[in-house]
Amino acid sequence: MRFLLSSLFLLLVGCASYPKKNGYVASKVQTTVVCNPYFSNPSIDYVYKSNIEVFDRSFGGILVIKKLGQDHHRIAFTTEMGNTLFDFSLKGDNLTINRIIKELDRKILVSVLKRDFLALTTESIQSIENFSKASKMLKKASILGKNHYYVFENDRLLQIIRAKNGKKKVVFLFSGISNNIAKKIDIQHHNFKLKISLKAI
Rank of each mutant, 00 (worst) to 15 (best):
D105P: 02
L10Y: 14
K102W: 03
E80C: 03
I62E: 10
R74Q: 12
S89V: 14
T79E: 07
L85G: 05
S27A: 10
K20Q: 14
G60I: 03
T84L: 10
L68F: 06
T79H: 12
F39P: 05
P42I: 03
A76P: 03
L5C: 09
V13P: 10
C35Q: 15
A26C: 01
R57M: 00
V29P: 02
P42F: 02
G23Y: 12
D105K: 05
N94T: 12
K21E: 08
R106D: 02
I97G: 04
T31F: 04
D105R: 03
A16K: 14
V54S: 01
S40E: 11
I52F: 00
V54K: 00
L90W: 07
F59T: 00
S27N: 05
F88Q: 07
H72E: 07
I97W: 09
A16W: 15
V64A: 02
L90M: 11
N98R: 07
V54R: 00
L104S: 01
V33Y: 05
A16C: 11
N98Q: 08
K21I: 03
I52K: 00
K66N: 02
K102E: 13
V25R: 15
L104Q: 03
S17E: 04
C35T: 12
G82L: 06
I75M: 08
D93C: 03
L68Y: 09
E103S: 11
D105H: 08
F59G: 00
I75L: 07
K21R: 15
H72M: 04
F88I: 01
G23Q: 12
K20A: 09
T96K: 15
C35L: 12
A26H: 12
S17F: 07
L85F: 06
K66R: 13
H72R: 07
L95W: 08
Y46H: 10
T79F: 08
C15T: 13
K66C: 01
D56W: 00
V64H: 06
L11M: 14
I101T: 05
L8W: 11
L68W: 08
N51M: 05
Y18I: 01
G82E: 09
K28M: 08
I65G: 02
L68D: 09
N94W: 03
F86T: 01
K49R: 15
G92Y: 10
S58E: 00
G14F: 13
S17Y: 07
V33D: 06
S43L: 06
D45F: 14
R106G: 01
N51W: 01
D93F: 06
G23R: 14
Y46T: 03
H73Q: 11
L11D: 05
S17G: 10
V29R: 15
K49Q: 14
K107T: 03
L95S: 05
G23T: 11
T78H: 10
L63N: 01
L90Y: 09
I52Y: 00
I97R: 02
I97F: 07
